[in-house]
């Protein structure tokens, strides 16, 4: 039921959103503003006096703003992930999923990345393999639990 192309599209979309939301907007406010004046001055300078070299202050301004922009990108990006497969997966196993501090409109927290193979349902739990979701079994389990603990509902 959760066909993969659909899901992949959704993931890609959400990643794009994430990127636009957190990175670009914050950066635009902080740093991008610095780069625009120098680009504009360069344009003005070359159109008005095409034959003279670019003044030093415009070059310096551009270099300084690029440096600032790069620092901003480094500082606002997500923490790095381990490159080695076993380290990466081991870290995930040890830490489990935790909140990332971002929330959807419905008030659900967006969690950090988890086992990408959970959809195979091979690791206990019994919530993997959603295509074969055993709705009646789960209903029965729940009904028995309610009967067992009458005061809990």
């Amino acid at each position: 039921m959760f066909s993969s192309p659909d899901r992949r599209l959704q993931i890609a979309d959400s990643q794009i959103r994430r990127f636009t939301d957190s990175q670009i907007i914050s950066m635009r406010h902080k740093n991008e503003a610095n780069i625009i004046p120098s680009v504009y001055s360069t344009h003005e300078h070359t159109t008005t006096t095409p034959n003279s070299p670019l003044p030093l202050d415009i070059t310096l301004e551009l270099l300084a703003s690029i440096l600032l922009l790069s620092t901003g990108i480094v500082l606002t990006s997500q923490p790095l992930k381990p490159i080695q497969w076993s380290r990466w997966s081991g870290k995930m196993s040890r830490e489990g999923r935790h909140g990332t501090g971002r929330w959807t409109r419905e008030g659900e927290e967006v969690l950090s990345e988890g086992d990408p193979y959970a959809f195979l349902g091979l690791d206990g739990g019994g919530e993997g393999r959603r295509g074969f979701f055993d709705v009646r079994g789960k209903r029965r389990e729940y009904a028995e639990w309610v009967k067992g603990e009458p005061g809990s509902k």
Binding site: E109, L111, G114, G125, G126, E127, K138, Y142, W145
Partner: peptide, 11 residues
Amino acid sequence: NLLTPPSSIPP
């Protein structure tokens, strides 16, 4: 969490 349900959901 409803967005990413846990791997096991007891009653």
